[in-house]
Nucleic acid binder design. Structure first.
Lengths: 235, 235
DNA sequence: TAGTGGTCTAGACCACCGT
DNA sequence: CGGTGGTCTAGACCACTAT
C-alpha cells in the first residue's frame, strides 16, 4: 500500500507513478492505460482521487481519455507546438534552407526600444536577411536585437538559424513569441530581392520573441504563393 | 432548486451562473465570490460538484482561488493565450462584433472529408458569414462542419460566436487548432461583401479546429489594413 | 477561533463504446 | 452486454488565512 500518508497528496504521487510507468514500460502513443477502477484497487484510492490525477495528466497533454473506451498515452503533437524557425519550417517541407545577409548594422534602438524593453538610446543590431528554400527566395526578414544580449555576433555565422546561434553561442532559448499576421502589397525593393517581377500580395509577420524577457523583434515578408506559415495553437 | 435534472451537467450550468453573476453584478477584478460551501447550500449541490465548476473557471482564467482566503474575480489577461475566436478578438479591441449569415447549406463533404476525417459522401454544413467590428466589415469566413456533430444547427443563432454555440448547444469545446496564414488578392466577390472598392491584399487564414478529433475546417479572408491577427505561441 | 480552499472516501447512476 | 469514463452525493479531515 504505497499511499500511507506523507505531505505529498496522493493524486500527485499517482501522477508521477503513471508517468514513470509510461516511460519504464516503453509505452507508445495510443497504448491503453489501466482503467480508473483498476488504479483505485491497485493503490487503495477512491475514484475521485484517481480521476484528479488522470485529469491533470490529460490537461498536461500526457494522456487522452475517451468516454466508453479508456485512457491512452497521448500522441505527441506531430508538428511540435508553436514556434518554428524558418530553418525548421523549410526542413520540415523537405527543402534546403539558405540565407543571405543583406544588411548588418549597429544603431540606437529608437522606437524598437519599447518592444524590447530597453532605452531608445541603447544599441541594437539590425540584421536583414534573405531566406531561401532550395534556391527559391521566400522571405525577407529583419531582426532587431539588443547589442548587449549578443556581444560579438558580428563574428557569428548568420547564414543559418538565428535560433541556433542564440542557443549555442549565448545560451538563449526562445520559449514564447507574440506574432501578428497581416497581408500587404510588395514594394519595389521587396520585388527585387524576392525576384517577383511585379506587385504581389505578401504575408507580413511581426513577432516579438521571448525567453523570459523580450529577446528580439522581427519583421518578415513572405511570398505566400509558394509558402504558407502554419502554427499549432492550443487553449 | 434550479438543479433538478436536464442533459446539461450541473457543474456546467453553475459555471454559466457564476459568469453571469460576475457580469450582472458588475463585479471587478479582486472582488470576492461566495464560498464553495455557500454555493453548495444555495443550489443544493455537493461540494465536489461546486469545486469542479470553480476549478474550471480558475483554469479558464476567470477566477483565482486562494487557500484560506477565498475565490476572487481574476484580473483579465492582457492578451489572451492561444486561440481566440473572432468574437473574442474583436471584443478584446474594445469593438462590438457583429455577424451576418451569407450562406447556409447542407451538402456532401467532398474534398473536405479528408480534413474532417469523414467520408466524402457524409454530409456537412457549409456556412459563410460576414464578420464585422462595430459596423465595419472585417472578414468573410466559411465553416465546414460534419452534420452529424451538430444536429439541428439550423435552429441555432449563428449571428454570434460559433465557439459559444458549439460549447453551449453541443458540449464541444475547441481545444487545439492548426492554422495557416497566407496573403492573397481580393476577388470581386470579396470586394463586394467587404466593401473594399478595389483590389486589396487580404490575409487568408485556414484552420482546422480540434476537440480530440477534428471538429470543423474554416477558411477566412481578413482585410488586414484594419485588423491584424495576433497569436501567442509557446514552445 | 472561525472560515476558507485542498484533499479524500465509498459509494451511486449515467452515457457511451465495443463485442 | 460488460467495461469505460462522466457526473454527483454527503460526508470527512487537513492546511492555511484572517481576526
Amino acid at each position: 500500500m504505497p499511499f500511507k500518508k506523507g505531505p505529498i497528496p496522493a493524486y500527485f504521487r499517482l501522477k508521477q507513478i503513471i508517468i514513470d510507468d509510461i516511460k519504464k514500460k516503453g509505452m507508445n502513443p495510443g497504448d491503453m492505460l489501466p482503467s480508473e477502477r483498476e488504479y483505485c484497487e491497485r493503490f487503495g484510492l477512491s475514484r475521485m482521487t484517481v480521476r484528479q490525477a488522470l485529469k491533470e495528466l490529460e490537461h498536461e497533454g500526457i494522456i487522452v481519455r475517451e468516454r466508453g473506451r479508456g485512457s491512452f498515452v497521448a500522441i505527441p503533437p506531430i508538428e511540435q507546438e508553436g514556434i518554428m524557425s524558418f530553418t525548421e519550417m523549410v526542413r520540415a517541407k523537405g527543402l534546403e534552407p539558405e540565407t543571405e545577409v543583406l544588411e548588418f548594422q549597429k544603431r540606437p534602438a529608437g522606437p524598437w526600444g519599447e518592444f524590447l524593453e530597453i532605452g531608445e538610446k541603447e544599441e541594437i543590431y539590425e540584421i536583414t536577411r534573405l531566406r531561401k528554400a532550395s534556391g527559391v527566395p521566400i522571405a525577407v526578414e529583419t531582426v532587431f536585437i539588443p547589442a548587449l544580449l549578443v556581444p560579438g555576433i558580428e563574428a557569428a555565422d548568420l547564414s543559418g538559424s538565428l535560433f541556433t546561434v542564440l542557443q549555442e553561442r549565448y545560451g538563449i532559448e526562445i520559449k514564447r513569441s507574440k506574432t501578428s499576421f497581416s497581408a500587404v502589397l510588395s514594394t519595389p525593393e521587396m520585388e527585387k530581392v524576392l525576384m517577383l517581377g511585379g506587385t504581389w500580395p505578401l504575408l507580413r509577420v511581426e513577432s516579438l520573441n521571448f525567453y523570459t524577457k523580450p529577446i528580439y523583434y522581427e519583421i518578415s515578408h513572405y511570398r505566400s504563393d509558394q509558402f504558407k506559415i502554419t502554427v499549432n495553437i492550443s487553449r
